Simulated assay, not measured.
Amino acid sequence: MAFGDGDSIDPLAVDGRAEKSGLNQASSAKWGPTNAQIKSRERVRDLAEVYTHKREVDAMLDLVAPMFPSEGDPANTDRTFLEPACGSGNFLEEILRRKLAFVSVARYGRGDRYEHRILRCVASIYGIDISQDNVDESRDRMRAVVNSHLDNDLNTKVVSDAFASAVEAILGTNIILGDTVADADRINLVEYRASHGCTFIRTWTTLDAASREMDLFAAMTPKCDARPVHFKELASHPEPVPALLNGVEA
């Protein structure tokens, strides 16, 4: 699902949970004033960068409400969103917040199942931008949303170190630098398909190959995991994993 460029920047306070989660703490100070629609005239000139107001972001996402979890379908957290010009992450931030609203300890318990469900929310959101500053800021804001959610839901409990590493691995593959118009054949995307036992099966493809199909990841590609990968192993296995033969990697 593709949307337009980013929104006004709404700084998100990050507290002690950032340390407890192991995620990098985002600096809200650099995000500029609330609802600012441009960062500078130079960026407007060089990048054609103008942000949309938050009310428009909310209104647009409200139009696709069935794409998000709800009281009637709380497990609907895996729908894929692709923002081809994500700016500083305004749509990405709100998409993630809406997905996480239905991920709670009360529903999933503490531990791997809870952490895996949060990762499923993060892994189904993609953003591409031509500015490295925007890519970095988008990742920061996604981290901040996760940190805020953990702080509100876990109270004094902490997540595993491997969870933080998995978040970083997913943000590294999903929020990326690129020109979606000129370089679609060189932009690599990784699908994270949730599997049993808190695992993922990843498939690699290029943006141009995916865009030729109705489904973002319907294009056939030989590059994929030969077996499910536990989320705690994502960071240590950035490339496709081989099948196991008698319990040993083939």
Rank of each mutant, 00 (worst) to 15 (best):
L100V: 03
F3Q: 00
K54L: 14
G247P: 07
N134D: 00
V50S: 08
R227M: 11
Q37E: 08
A169P: 03
E94V: 11
P228F: 06
V167T: 01
K39N: 06
A250L: 02
A243G: 12
S70I: 05
E71C: 03
A26G: 15
N246D: 14
S8V: 02
A2R: 04
A210W: 04
H149E: 04
G197K: 10
W204Q: 09
H149F: 10
S27R: 13
L119I: 01
N35F: 06
P11W: 11
P222G: 08
W31N: 05
I130C: 04
T52F: 07
D185P: 03
A26R: 03
A48S: 07
G72P: 05
I125M: 01
L171M: 06
K157H: 10
Y192L: 06
V122N: 02
D208K: 12
E213C: 14
G4D: 11
T34S: 06
I130N: 02
R79Y: 07
R193V: 11
I175M: 15
H237D: 14
L63T: 09
E168L: 05
T203Q: 12
N24M: 06
A26I: 04
L150R: 02
L63I: 01
S211A: 15
L207W: 06
L119S: 01
Y192N: 08
A2F: 08
L244E: 10
K39D: 08
E19N: 07
P69N: 09
S165V: 00
L171T: 02
V103Y: 01
V14Y: 00
V122E: 00
R98F: 13
A162W: 14
D161N: 15
H149W: 08
L216Q: 08
T156P: 07
K39S: 05
P74W: 10
D10A: 15
E239L: 15
A162E: 11
D161C: 09
D179C: 08
A235F: 11
S236K: 15
N147I: 14
C224V: 08
I187C: 15
I176Q: 05
R117N: 04
F200P: 03
D10C: 13
G172Y: 06
E249M: 12
A194F: 03
D208I: 10
E49V: 01
H237V: 06
S195A: 15
T34H: 11
T77H: 03
I201H: 07
V64P: 04
N24H: 13
L154F: 11
S8W: 01
D133S: 13
F81T: 03
N246R: 15
P238D: 10
A123K: 03
Y126M: 02
I38H: 04
A36L: 00
D208C: 10
T203V: 07
A182L: 12
